[in-house]
Design a protein around this nucleic acid. Sequence first.
DNA 1: AAGTAAATCAACCGCTCCTAT
DNA 2: AATAGGAGCGGTTGATTTACT
Length: 326
Amino acid sequence: MGRPPCCDKVGVKKGPWTPEEDIILVSYIQEHGPGNWRSVPTNTGFPGLLRCSKSCRLRWTNYLRPGIKRGNFTEHEEKMIIHLQALLGNRWAAIASYLPQRTDNDIKNYWNTHLKKKLKKLHTGLDDLNQDGFSASQPITKGQWERRLQTDIQMAKRALCEALSLDKPSQFPDSKPSNGDAHLYATPYQASTYASSAENIARLLENWQKRSPKSAQTNSGTTQNSSNNLVANGSSLNYTEGARTPDAFDSLLSFNSSTSDVSQSVSVEENANFTPETNLFQDESKSNLEAEVPLTLLEKWLFDDGAAQGHEDLIHMSLEDGAGLF
DNA sequence: AAGTAAATCAACCGCTCCTAT
DNA sequence: AATAGGAGCGGTTGATTTACT
């Protein structure tokens, strides 16, 4: 009955990830691709990752995954988030699908720490708002449900539109997971894809070093060594942890350098064309939709309705009366 | 310079849904 | 069809950093 037992929780490490753990995880994903998280802790060899699969997934999707932009939200992004939050409520994953470079966790944090206050400020003096002042904490009106539904439909249409586009051949006809990680397969399991993970790690490690001045000092010898390697590969990184690290990074970076320019290998624009929903639909559309629904009908429905509109339209679509939500 | 409060954000927890058996 | 595990999601926590007194 069912599957084999879940990973036992004995000896599972918690708390902040170390650079070495990041390297192990990225190396693993370079080899096997994302997904099948349950096997990550056991397949990373001795000593391997003493992390639960959940933690690995989170670390990858939120920090190590290629194409992630962190911090410095632009005004445009802020507006997008505000509008989408008004439309969708606290459905961070759905909101994040409109901002492919951002993670749901990042957006959620940014909303809670910045935007909430910002909007609160803007709306101080409005007596009819409760403390949160936003749709998520308000009773959802019929109109709001309709708007959410509309947005979901828009998302689905957009995704279908992408999926049905003949210009975009399926990149992984045979290697997609059946679970929700399909969006992680938006870019091929090619070396170039994961090369940009090295950039992510570089960035993370840079911050890590800033937070750990002591270790930076005590390991200054190896630091110099490894940072040289990294700088030579185009990452402004000062790395500091332990003697093993440079080797691990050498491996990563040699991998990196063998695949041409990192910045070209995974362009952000490219990623932007593949929202999670899009990829899910790409996946499904190939196997199911084409078989069950005449293409022409779907296409007509999509294109007649101007489904190809971009993200900007979403803002404008944000419903004239949407302001009333605040 | 030291102490304290506030802000930030990475990571965990618990729940739900989906899927494999 | 029933069951159990995996994956994803949103809420929350707690450690760290920054600002203020």
